[in-house]
């Protein structure tokens, strides 16, 4: 370390109290460096410790039978750390035992007048068990898919949620040539529980339009919603727009899909046109207004202003909505002026 870097090293005439201050600053700096190093060291101390040592420590705590906040926190940390690595038989036994543990210490809720668990070792243990199941399923799926095992799909549909999640983890890691083999089978079985998640993962990995179509038309809302948010990145803007038009037919994800269309509108004029035509749609119009407001430039504001004179009541109201939602000051003023003109006596909107 360059001693010239120390505070005060540039001053030639050091007064006695400055000497004390400088010593204090040096000690603090050293302490802070130690803390920074120490923080990493503490973290590394959990991660670097052997499974057997962690298990032994937990057993010691349990055998001592002393329940404090520190011991409960330690047990939780041990259990969660074990979840990040392959389990030994002893670790499995420990976690299985702890998975039945009720919260031992309650603390006051911040709202007062009720108590909640300080730490829930049992819950942490159950999460660890699911992580192990997921990790094992991932390993098995990697092996099966690489081998082109025809049983892979059947095993997938028979697995629980953690098992299916592990298989999907594997799909996300594999190269295209391994996944193509299962593509058509996944589409054929898209109606089965969990198929949409697998199809979505395969679609992303393969950048496959047909798989995305099956997800967007028949997938559960949560899976379909997640899928539309990655379309541009995986299949490109043009294909993404075609798929989003498909998604617009589903009321449960149509609004979110329009937001994605909005994100494409910067590069695809046809996407912007889709927003304008959606403005008059009874189901989509409010979302179209919100998206237009988010991407409003001067031309957009001008066009919305002209729509305030529309004879179509719904279009007029959606244009007003877009102007009001816009972050553009001019747009907001146009909306205010129009309202004042059309409802001069009403203080509130109705």
């Amino acid at each position: 370390m360059n001693p010239n870097w120390w505070p005060g090293s540039y001053s030639k005439a050091i007064q006695p109290n400055n000497a004390i201050i400088n010593m204090f600053l040096r000690i603090m700096l050293l302490f802070l460096i130690t803390m920074a190093f120490g923080a990493q060291a503490a973290d590394m101390s959990w991660q670097s410790r052997k499974t057997a040592d962690l298990v032994a420590e937990a057993r010691t705590l349990l055998d001592l039978g002393k329940v404090t906040r520190a011991t409960e926190k330690q047990l939780e940390q041990i259990v969660l750390t074990l979840g990040s690595r392959a389990p030994s038989p002893d670790a499995r036994g420990l976690v299985e035992q702890l998975s039945q543990r009720e919260p031992q210490i309650l603390v006051a809720h911040e709202e007062g007048n009720t108590m909640i668990p300080f730490v829930d070792v049992g819950a942490a243990a159950r999460v660890t068990q699911r992580r192990w199941t997921r990790a094992a399923a991932r390993t098995n799926a990697l092996r099966a898919i690489r081998a082109g095992d025809p049983q892979f799909l059947q095993n997938y549909f028979s697995a629980d949620a953690a098992g299916q999640a592990g298989a999907i983890d594997a799909v996300g890691e594999l190269q295209v040539q391994y996944l193509v083999f299962y593509r058509d089978q996944i589409i054929d079985r898209i109606e089965e529980p969990g198929a949409d998640k697998l199809a979505a993962a395969a679609a992303a990995a393969l950048a496959d339009i047909a798989l995305y179509e099956s997800v967007l038309t028949t997938g559960t809302p949560a899976i379909a919603l997640a899928a539309i948010r990655e379309l541009e990145q995986t299949v490109g803007a043009d294909a993404a727009l075609r798929l989003l038009k498909l998604a617009l037919r589903r009321p449960d994800i149509a609004s979110a899909s329009l937001y994605e269309v909005g994100r494409l509108s910067a590069t695809l004029p046809v996407a912007k046109n889709l927003l304008w035509t959606s403005l008059s749609d009874p189901g989509l119009g409010s979302s179209a207004a919100a998206v237009l407001a988010r991407h409003a430039d001067r031309n957009t504001v001008n066009r919305l202003a002209t729509l305030l004179d529309s004879t179509e009541n719904l279009v007029q109201k959606r244009a007003l909505l877009a102007l009001r939602l816009s972050g553009d000051a001019r747009a907001k003023q146009i909306a205010r002026d129009w309202l004042a003109q059309s409802r001069p006596d009403n203080e509130s909107d109705r």
Binding site: P221, S287, A290, L314, R350
Partner: peptide, 24 residues
């Protein structure tokens, strides 16, 4: 998203939904 989903809407979406209901 203005429509309720299996998730939490952004404030701007919630606000847009409220305003649309009011205006329409």
């Amino acid at each position: 998203t203005l429509t309720a989903v299996d998730g939490f809407r952004t404030y701007s979406s919630l606000f847009a939904q409220h305003q649309d209901l009011m205006l329409t």
